[in-house]
């Protein structure tokens, strides 16, 4: 039984992210962290591997900056880490990402379950997870808020998944790719011993050649990044007793036809 998860390093959530004069995205001296949604997928991977006395592996696709996220994952308790990096691979192209991710899963060979975080905050999307499932031809279960049961012998999985209108419980077949929501678990902090062990780990890097695949032709691309337009908001402070403040605010909102 082998559970695999994917992660990446993203700027610290409190960092001010800006586009420089050269058009490149930067975040000053701020550190990178594990993509915030991945804390839940990492924790769930550890839990599911433990429950089944199986193996756990974390994979990052992209350059050396993602080693930080991989080491954090090892420090939390994931057993193995792999990075996929290749000059011909743009990890922000989701079709290329999914092709590489599926290639890595096939190379590992014995994987039953792949867990992604809900989305990546840098690229702002989750499409790579669904695309990975389709490239593998596996079951895709998204927005999972609870894994109710997994039966590895009979290859079945039952989960609760969220839609805008409520919660659906479904049973499906392994192998499967799932994306998990915040709230599915309480992510642990890396232990001191875990951090020490992770800092010494050497992380193997696989190329597309190692996976026996080539990158697909690019079908969509990001051509530019922009800072947000500065909003000219002049705050109007409303003073007085609470009743006076309330009356004035309602008057102004009605006047501005907000309601």
């Amino acid at each position: 039984m082998h559970v695999v998860t994917f992660t990446r390093s993203t700027p610290d959530t409190a960092a001010k992210v800006e586009v420089g004069k050269d058009g490149a995205v930067g975040w000053g001296d701020a550190a990178t962290v594990v993509n915030p949604w991945d804390e839940y997928s990492l924790e769930e991977t550890i839990l599911q591997a433990e429950n089944a006395s199986g193996k756990s592996t974390v994979i990052a696709i992209g350059g050396e900056m993602h080693n930080d996220a991989l080491k954090h994952s090892l420090a939390m308790g994931i057993e193995n880490a792999i990075r996929i990096d290749d000059p011909n691979l743009d990890s922000t192209d989701s079709l290329a990402y999914a092709t590489a991710a599926a290639g890595a899963i096939k190379k590992l060979g014995d994987v039953d379950l792949v867990i992604f975080g809900k989305e990546s905050v840098d690229v702002g999307t989750d499409q790579h997870a669904y695309m990975t499932a389709r490239k593998l031809g596996w079951t895709m279960l998204s927005y999972v808020s609870k894994i109710v049961a997994i039966d590895y012998a009979n290859k079945t999985i039952t989960v609760e998944k969220m839609y805008e209108q409520g919660k659906q419980t479904v049973t499906s077949q392994l192998p499967a790719v799932i994306t998990v929501m915040k709230g599915i678990n309480e992510p642990r902090y890396p232990s001191f011993i875990g951090i020490r062990k992770a800092s010494k780990a050497t992380i193997p890097v696989w190329s597309l050649g190692d996976l026996g695949i080539s990158a697909p032709a690019k079908k969509a691309e990001t051509v530019a990044f922009m800072n947000l337009p500065t909003k000219e908001v002049q705050v109007e402070m409303i003073t007085g007793t609470p009743e006076e403040q309330a009356a004035q605010l309602v008057e102004k909102l009605l006047e501005a036809k907000v309601l």
């Binding site: 989701s94 079709l95 999914a98 702002g124 999307t125 989750d126 499409q127 997870a129 669904y130 695309m131 499932a133 389709r134 490239k135 895709m140 998204s142 927005y143 969220m162 839609y163 805008e164 697909p216 690019k218 079908k219 969509a220």
Partner: peptide, 22 residues
């Protein structure tokens, strides 16, 4: 939406097409 993102991503992968979200 959850359904919209999942459905279009899957079909984009099936047809090796480009996908842009949000």
């Amino acid at each position: 939406t959850n359904r919209g993102r999942e459905l279009l991503s899957a079909s984009a992968a099936d047809t090796d097409s480009g996908m842009i979200t949000e």
